[in-house]
């Protein structure tokens, strides 16, 4: 898939002159990739200027320029999941249906395979059958799970989970939370409470607060990232559903404005469908 689309990206430029039409097509392509109007206009303006300044006539040359530009926007956002031998707590949060629970399953599977003692914590006590969904992922990945009844206080589940983790020497705790829109203040407060509960057991540097973003979502992702970052100090982003046709271009303005590291990409519903974020490959896909 990757190579074929890289070729398509080339096609937009192949054998073409640098003219207004090309810039317009570029604009459409960038907007369609969910990069957003503001950044797109800025990028196209910059390309225009560069084309004049360097007297570029052939589109092929512009292609490299554009690629370089996009890569420079996101390369500092390449991040990796925190790893060490001792206990690390991973708090998953995000809007409804973005892929939190599924991603926990995948990451837990990876930790278990690495031989880490791994515990899942079912702190989505709200959505119907959310606990049972996580239980299936615990079985699939071979991780243990801490749960309470539906409707319990999520912070209480977290408390119980971390108590168990500390006393039984777990190395990885992955906390599932209910999906919540960033616009809902009471739900954001609840997240803060969960975070504070975690910090009673481990220090901030041993917590990964991971925002799960759905690549099919458009410019709304930017406000999600802003609000969640403000509320609970996000340490990384996981971008899911990249196996569809959406490119997840919103992470470009997010990287630029908010500088939150992107730590993993989700490319499917299976246990192994988790990949690292590679800025160059990401840009290839973005423009395809």
């Amino acid at each position: 898939k990757k190579t074929k689309e890289a070729v398509e990206f080339g096609l937009l430029f192949r054998g073409r002159k640098v003219d207004e039409e090309l810039f317009e097509e570029l604009e459409e392509r960038l907007i369609r990739a969910d990069i957003g109007v503001k950044l797109t206009v800025k990028i196209v303006e910059e390309l225009r200027k560069e084309a004049i300044r360097r007297n570029i006539k052939q589109a092929e040359e512009l292609k490299d320029l554009l690629k370089g530009m996009l890569i420079s926007y996101i390369k500092d956002c390449k991040g990796e999941i925190k790893q060490k031998d001792e206990l690390v707590v991973y708090l998953f949060l995000g809007v409804n249906g973005s892929g939190k629970t599924t991603t926990i399953g995948k990451l837990a599977y990876r930790f278990v395979k690495e031989g880490k003692k791994t515990l899942l914590c079912a702190a989505d006590t709200f959505r119907a059958a959310a606990i049972e969904q996580l239980e299936v992922w615990a079985q699939r990945s071979g991780a243990d799970i801490v749960k309470k009844q539906e409707g319990s206080d999520p912070a209480a589940v977290v408390y119980e989970g971390l108590q168990k983790a500390v006393s039984e020497g777990y190395q990885r705790v992955l906390i599932d939370t209910a999906g919540r829109l960033h616009t809902k203040e009471p739900l954001i407060k609840e997240l803060r409470k969960i975070k504070q509960t975690i910090l009673r057991f481990v220090s901030e540097e041993d917590v990964e607060t991971l925002l799960v973003l759905d690549a099919t979502i458009g410019q709304n992702s930017i406000s999600q990232a802003k609000v969640f970052k403000e509320a609970v100090d996000i340490s990384g982003i996981i971008l899911t559903k990249l196996d569809g046709t959406s490119k997840g271009g919103t992470v470009v303005p997010i990287c630029q404005e908010l500088k939150i590291p992107i730590k993993l990409l989700g490319l499917g519903e299976g246990l192994e469908d988790l990949q690292p974020f590679e800025p160059e490959a990401f840009v290839e896909e973005l423009l395809s």
């Binding site: 907007i31 046709t245 919103t250």
Partner: peptide, 12 residues
């Protein structure tokens, strides 16, 4: 459909 969907929404 999710109302927050981006530019691919219509194609899908």
């Amino acid at each position: 459909a999710d109302a927050m969907q981006g530019q691919e929404a219509l194609n899908v």
